[in-house]
Design a protein around this nucleic acid. Structure first.
Lengths: 338, 338
DNA sequence: CTGAAAGCGCTAACAA
DNA sequence: TTGTTAGCGCTTTCAG
């Protein structure tokens, strides 16, 4: 079927080794040979067979993206990250395999690893337990985790810098003159919420405002709970706040409904800001200002990082990256009501 | 590094050919040999190397999912489909590569195909132009398109049956006594909208209602346009409709806002239904009934279909599949207001 | 039913 | 700088 290195060698009148050298751009090839081989390759429309190369070198130029199988709750960030990784991997001639596991059963990954199908592993949304670590060590598989794992580890990881995102949110509100903050977060154990809260406190502190001016309430992550909690709080302490930060869109929706019921005008009497544009910050009334994390860029960086990891397997890199983007809309300013 | 077939052969006291036969479950192997080989494989924890197998057979057991690179507008369906495909491919021991192309530049796919890295191709969200067809033919690459292409083709494809989805929506409304339908769709050239509309007409016809009782208006796909159009129409022809079908969530949001402004109560005076739960049918007030298409199942079927295509490359299969699911909520019934 | 041996297409010592 | 040659690990004729 395909043209092989052998035919190219014959056409060019050199050995297959020379063709291979040209193919892999070895420095030690004379210009004439290179020239002749190049010409032959063009003439015969030669394309090297990856399978053969893989067998000979032991490398596959393939990386696997491992995630959980959850047909129902697709995390919108997951796809953006996947996309970013593929994109940056492509620049280094790596291909990306997509693999989902069920209920923590690592069998598919074991197969892939023991069959030596991949040179590297990127893990997303999977708990880092002993069985996974054992696997990674057994095959000395260069690995990158998306998201800082709960427990300390010597594996490399990359994660968003949620504190910085919180700072950006706070700065936006401070800019508009806000001084009394209410943060509506998810459950306390939620790392993301608390990091964002910390960022707010930090930003506020820089303005000389004490952290006692930033109230934190935490509710179950559905609009109704946020609505109830905010109503209760504002009825009790009317005028205690001039802005509300909601940890995500769903909570923000509840916040808006509470304010509407209480006849508190947004943004004139109360500014509201949230994180992410998923699923609907852009379609509320008024439209919500938000800090969206550019997870696609996170993916791009992750691709870069796994390549580094494959080139320097012994190196451990653990990085927070910040790509917060302020989408300022009607809920924090007067001038631009849609 | 890894255990090879050779060592297994020695351990079992047979030839490598026999090990290979056992590995591929050839019928013509004596029980004793099979037994001995099995034991040896277990003992040595043998796992065959896919790269070597690929080189020997010319097959890779890999399929590529080709889609466009668009970091900004991630189609939520895309991920669900990808997930489904991976899932069903796994059952057949195929792995899935994820590949994005930019601005229609097929170079990455050419590389992959000419390097013989994949046995099959699944295309999603990419225009089927001549260059793609040429590629597919040149490599005789088994291919499956997700979504019926605009132009007739001899390639295999699989698509949702949007007409059936339309019927399901209409039946829900008919069940509640609705007789006068308003369909708010996207642009006319939008295939999905028109198919759904057709389904409604068909369902309604079965009840002896003429298609003149189903009014179709088409607006730009943003809430505001739907809101305006519905307001204008209902002000002009008050009482002409007892239900509204919105082609998607965004339009439905506009519809709800229009009805709210007109003080028309949902669902008592007007029932509303829409398609998909993306991004927010579940969070409007009242919550929207919707017909969601189970795109993950579409992905599962697509995986099945590409496997068939690889096994029978000459066969052309073009299929509409229906997985509509009715999510009935407050916007079409009285009893269950959240 | 089983074994010997020749590939699959490319790489990588080792010599020259 | 180049060619020779022995693999990489598995499959697949072809004899036996």
């Amino acid at each position: 079927m395909g043209v092989t290195i052998k035919e190219v060698a014959r056409e060019a009148g050199v050995s297959t080794a020379s063709v291979s050298r040209v193919l892999n751009s070895f420095p030690s090839v004379s210009p004439e040979v290179r020239e002749r081989v190049d010409r032959a390759m063009k003439k015969l429309r030669f394309v090297p067979d990856r399978k053969a190369k893989s067998l000979a070198t032991g490398k596959t130029s393939q990386v696997v993206f491992l995630t959980t199988y959850e047909p129902l709750f697709d995390d919108p960030h997951k796809f953006a990250i996947l996309s970013g990784i593929e994109r940056s991997l492509a620049r280094y001639k790596y291909n990306l395999l997509f693999l989902q596991i069920n209920r923590g059963d690592l069998t598919p990954l074991w197969k892939m690893a023991s069959q030596k199908q991949v040179d590297g592993l990127v893990v997303h949304g999977i708990e880092i337990d002993l069985s996974l670590i054992k696997l990674i060590e057994e095959f000395a598989l260069p690995t990158l985790l998306i998201g800082e794992p709960k427990e300390k580890t010597t594996l490399s990881w990359i994660d968003n810098n949620n504190e910085v995102a919180g700072e950006v949110a706070a700065n936006c509100l401070l800019k508009h003159g806000c001084r009394k903050f209410l943060f509506v977060g998810g459950r306390e154990e939620d790392n993301i919420s608390t990091s964002r809260y910390k960022g707010i406190v930090r930003a506020v502190a820089k303005k000389g405002i004490g952290s006692d001016e930033v109230e934190f309430i935490s509710v179950a992550p559905v609009p109704l709970q946020a609505e109830k909690a905010v109503k209760a709080l504002l009825s009790a302490k009317a005028g205690s706040f001039d802005c509300i930060v909601a940890a995500n869109n769903l909570l923000a929706l509840g916040v808006l409904r509470a304010l509407q019921d209480l006849k508190i005008k947004v943004p004139s009497q109360m500014k509201v800001i949230t994180f992410d544009d998923y699923p609907f910050a852009n379609y509320t009334k008024p439209r919500l200002s938000s800090i969206s994390i550019d997870v696609h860029s996170l993916g791009l960086s992750a691709g870069q990082a796994i390549v580094d990891q494959m080139r320097n397997p012994e190196r451990v890199s653990q990085t927070y990256i910040a790509f917060p983007r302020l989408n300022e809309r009607a809920s924090t300013r007067y001038d631009n009501e849609p």
